[in-house]
């Protein structure tokens, strides 16, 4: 039952996963907490682990959530759900309509979709900040987490540091501070 539920949930997510993996984080999170598979804080750790693994972050998160929920069969069910919509659509496009992405209606759709995806990811950042007390009542923890957050952002945007390096450095800060 759990397996079927994992498969259907990730099939839905796979069908709407436009615009890069990070756009799918709030979608996966909404479904994962709806089903009671994980808390938002646990899911934040999933993103960290998914970000440290090679490969697409949304697919990696699906694998982890599936494994956490129903071991190896769960991971397989979630992964299949995630990739089957892509497989089906690409087979249709490749055999029928190679110029799909040049259609004016597809271009118009992306005109609206891209800023919505951006808004979705911004929302997701704020949501995760609240769930992990990076934003909240003033305390040593909140202020220091805000510090780690700011330094991480600076390292990513200005120093062009690799996400894995940033995760490792933030982990060391965590061990020193808490």
């Amino acid at each position: 039952m759990e397996l079927l539920s994992l498969f259907w949930t990730f099939l839905l997510i796979g069908t709407v996963s436009f615009g890069g993996g990070y756009a799918m984080i709030p979608v996966i999170e909404a479904e994962v907490s709806k089903h009671g598979w994980m808390t938002t804080q646990e899911f934040t750790d999933v993103i960290a682990v998914a970000g440290m693994s090679p490969g697409p972050i949304a697919t990696n998160s699906a694998i982890f959530v599936g494994y956490h929920t129903a071991a190896l069969p769960g991971a397989i069910a979630a992964t299949l759900g995630m990739v089957l919509p892509s497989l089906a659509l690409i087979l249709i496009i490749a055999s029928v309509f190679f110029k799909f992405h040049r259609l004016p209606i597809v271009k118009s759709a992306f005109y609206g979709l891209r800023p919505i995806i951006t808004g979705l990811i911004i929302y997701s950042a704020i949501h995760f900040a609240l769930a992990n007390r990076v934003l909240g009542e003033w305390s040593f923890e909140t202020i220091s987490l805000l510090g780690i957050f700011s330094l991480s952002l600076f390292a990513l945007v200005k120093l062009r540091m690799h996400p894995i390096v940033v995760i490792v450095l933030a982990g060391i800060c965590g061990i020193v501070l808490y």
Binding site: Y22, I25, Q41, T44, D45, I47, A48, G51, I121, S124, A125, F128, A129, N132, V134, L145, L146, I148, F149, S150, S152, L153, L156, P163, V166, I167, L169, A170, G171, I172, C173, G174, I175, L177, Y178
Partner: peptide, 10 residues
């Protein structure tokens, strides 16, 4: 600490 970095990554 890593959770704060994840927010920055997002």
């Amino acid at each position: 600490g890593i959770r704060a970095a994840v927010v920055a990554m997002i």
